[in-house]
Amino acid sequence: MKRLLRSKTVMLVYVSAVVVAVFFIMNHNYLSGDNIRGIMNNMSLSGTLGVGMAFLLMGGGIDLAAGAEGCFGAVLVALLMKTGMPWPVAMLLGLMYGAAAGALNAFLINGLNFMGFIATIAMSSVYNGFALVLTNNQNVAISNQAFWRVGSYALFGVFPMAFVILIGLIAVYGFILAKTRFGRCILLCGGNRMAARLAGVSPKKVTTILYMNCGALATLAGSVLAARMHNASPTAVATGALDAITAAVLGGVSFMGGGGSIGGLLIGLILLNTFNNGLIVVQLPSYWQIVSQGALLIIALCVDFFNERAKALALKSSSAKRAV
């Protein structure tokens, strides 16, 4: 099983390399410094959302509202700064809003027993609408120059701040998943919620934290983007949830919960973003890009489906063996 997973990760690295090679051959600018920085910036956006989403998926949840939560959060942070509030305070309040939005999702799902899909699709519409109402569908300009630095600062003059944040998140969350009690509990709850509960783990507590985390990271992703753009758009990351799910599932995070790793997520992110950026570089018409991105998620889901089916078959053959 482990070998299988490892070989799958290795295969994904090959696939990413082939994607990069193909786009590079089609347009040599693909690997220019500017374009790589662009890839890193985009990857930070889907990655910051993706960390929250991947954890949620591993724990057996899903948040289709993550993108809308992020947009609304960014708008909120921008409006708060407009009142003259220092950016760290505005940011902190924004993160608290994100966590609260996640807690509300968790309440709908854990408390009222709604299906995650339905509850979060509905909430997605709510946040989307709120963001439009607050802004009248106009971008909120940000004049706080200190906050701009969050978007424009580059470590060693090369790595954008957003990317540094993503790498930091991946390191910390990787440790949480692999080394801590909470990380183990995520995988146990996602693997079998009922069994985990009967063995003393609290699935409601675990998933509530994961939803709050996802909401907060969505706001972080939206705000960092706003800092880079010098304005907050009510629709900038509206499809963020889709990208985040695609990256996670591409990287081997089980859509059914209970499996996945941070390393896998990272490769999923690289694959997703090199692919999406490549489409732009080879000047595929933008509507076709949308089609391709959806198709990529379908491919990722197919791979996940066949994995789950292999698991189910293994389950059958193992009980058949016992019959002999």
Binding site: M1, L188, G191, M194, A195, A196, G200, V201, G258
Partner: peptide, 17 residues
């Protein structure tokens, strides 16, 4: 259905509580 997290290791299942 209720006792084990089938796709986790023996260790993960023993140390759950």
């Amino acid at each position: 259905e209720q006792g084990l997290v089938l796709f986790r290791s023996v260790r993960d299942n023993v140390t759950m509580p």
